[in-house]
Amino acid sequence: MKKILLLCAAGMSTSLLVTKMKNSAKEKGIKVEIEACPVEKFTDKLPIYDIFLLGPQVRFKQDELNLIAKEHNKRVEVINMMDYGTMNGKKVLEDALNHLK
């Protein structure tokens, strides 16, 4: 089972996106764990998750976090701003899974 963590500043809209991603995964029969937390918890969560998705509001952290993530053979990607703004859980899930291939 793949584990995806969304990282954000506060978490309200990201939590809604997580719900939409989980619903999309359920509809497609994909077993995946998806959660969200503040970006400050990244290092605590690093051993647990396979990929980390940054909300557009914290995209400036990508380079810094990728340096740490690469040491653990993991990735940090930024959620497409349009998909985030429209809460397109299906597309964000597809993008995350494609990054894991």
Rank of each mutant, 00 (worst) to 15 (best):
M1L: 13
K2P: 11
K2E: 13
K2W: 14
K2C: 10
K2H: 12
I4G: 08
I4F: 10
L5A: 05
L5E: 10
L6I: 14
C8E: 09
A10H: 11
A10C: 09
A10P: 05
G11K: 06
S13I: 08
S13L: 11
S13R: 11
T14R: 03
T14L: 10
T14H: 11
S15I: 14
L16Q: 06
L17S: 14
L17N: 13
V18F: 02
V18M: 10
V18Y: 06
K20C: 06
M21E: 05
M21Y: 13
N23P: 01
S24M: 00
A25D: 10
A25V: 06
A25W: 09
K26P: 01
K26G: 00
E27I: 02
E27C: 01
K28D: 15
I30K: 14
K31Q: 15
K31M: 12
K31C: 08
K31L: 12
V32K: 13
V32L: 11
V32A: 10
V32R: 05
E33P: 07
E35D: 14
E35P: 06
A36E: 07
A36S: 13
A36P: 04
C37Q: 05
C37D: 07
P38D: 14
V39P: 00
K41A: 01
K41F: 01
D44S: 15
D44Y: 08
K45R: 07
K45L: 07
L46P: 04
L46G: 04
P47F: 07
P47Q: 02
P47V: 07
I48N: 10
I48T: 14
I48H: 12
Y49D: 15
F52C: 09
L53H: 04
L53D: 00
L54I: 10
L54W: 09
P56T: 08
Q57W: 00
Q57V: 02
V58C: 00
V58Y: 02
R59L: 05
K61P: 07
K61L: 14
K61C: 13
K61F: 14
Q62T: 11
D63C: 02
D63F: 04
D63T: 04
E64P: 00
L65E: 08
N66H: 01
I68T: 11
A69M: 12
K70H: 00
K70P: 00
E71G: 13
E71R: 15
H72G: 04
H72K: 08
E77W: 10
E77A: 07
V78H: 12
I79R: 04
I79H: 02
N80W: 01
N80P: 02
N80R: 06
M81V: 15
M81K: 13
M81D: 06
M81W: 07
M82C: 03
Y84F: 09
G85K: 07
T86D: 03
M87C: 05
M87F: 12
M87K: 03
N88V: 01
G89F: 09
G89N: 09
K91L: 04
K91F: 03
V92I: 15
L93W: 07
L93E: 05
E94L: 06
D95C: 02
D95V: 00
A96M: 01
L97V: 02
L97S: 06
L97A: 08
N98M: 08
N98I: 01
L100R: 15
L100C: 14
L100M: 15
K101I: 12
K101W: 12
K101L: 13
